[in-house]
Design a binder for these strands. Structure first.
Ligand SMILES: [Mn+2]
Ligand SMILES: [Mn+2]
Ligand SMILES: [Zn+2]
Ligand SMILES: [Zn+2]
Lengths: 151, 151
DNA sequence: GACCTAATCTGCAAATCATGCGAATAAGCA
DNA sequence: TGCTTATTCGCATGATTTGCAGATTAGGTC
């Protein structure tokens, strides 16, 4: 996703209005690597802008997605998560705390479908499930992230 | 998933009852490579057993999953799909018709996370999105599978 | 075969997540 | 300031899945 400033420009140039709700969401999403759900963004947004509607959060997220500024990902049937990282990347989901990390992958081109089933893949996505660095360290659990488990 | 006969044996040996509903679902799931949703199974089941409850379908699918006889998969936030294929495998989802095919993958072990982020993956799943063989053939579209798109 | 009882099935309420819709509101502009 | 129209908001509705409780039944006992 582009910077809030660039998004303001884009919205303006497309004749869309610059509302406080949109600006807040631009800033909450910018470089946000947490893959938040709509509800999570709503909670954060509400703290800064009491009265903002969950409906507006969904609306804005849908708009940004349709503009190609956001992508949506889901894991294991949980709620949709929003991802401002437009680079080609994959994900690592922690079984313990539910954290979702962006990962780059080496040798993805080596991966191929074994059987000659004539499927023409246009995209490939890889999801790792396992234990994240924080949850792996047996030290103090005091600073462990809260459980964001999808389901 | 094991054969209906073996499942009957397993259920019996665990003190579970062999009901017509369960037997029907055993047979509908056996070697079923369509990755059906609960609703889809309910529709098929209802044709053979009018009056069967959707709740029972869900219940049985949950039971089989907990017994390790079924696995559940979801794609793009759609409804949960049930998979009797217990072998380690991956999936190819057709963008056109929504068909989901099982695929085996070569060189998966070559795939690795680039950055040293200390994530310890316990499992890796790969999903291809693209066009299936049927949808790719420009011949008669009459025999194309119906659209089962997840969303 | 009749009887008993726990397991199962069923119908419906309710939870969760997401979208449709219309009325109220406010951004952008003359 | 006042107009126009996009946007926001609240609520209803839809889709999927689970909780619950009463009715039913499989499977054992006599
Ligand atoms: Mn990401
Ligand atoms: Mn499969
Ligand atoms: Zn973790
Ligand atoms: Zn297809």
């Amino acid at each position: 996703m582009r910077s809030p400033e660039q998004l303001v420009e884009r919205f303006r140039s497309e004749g869309l209005k610059i509302t406080p709700q949109r600006q807040l969401l631009f800033s909450l999403l910018h470089e946000n690597a947490e893959h938040p759900t709509a509800e999570a963004l709503y909670t954060t947004a509400s703290a800064q802008m009491p009265g903002i509607s969950l409906r507006t959060v969904y609306q804005t997220l849908t708009d940004l997605t349709e503009m190609g500024e956001l992508s949506q990902v889901t894991f294991d049937g949980g709620a949709v998560r929003f991802d401002p990282n437009l680079a080609d990347h994959h994900h690592a989901v922690c079984n313990e705390c539910g954290a979702i990390a962006d990962v780059s992958i080496d040798h993805l081109d080596a991966v191929s479908i074994s059987e000659p089933n004539h499927f023409s893949p246009s995209s490939t996505s890889v999801v790792f499930h396992g234990t994240c660095a924080r949850c792996a360290t047996p030290t103090s659990n005091l600073d462990k992230p809260t459980n964001n488990q999808t389901k």
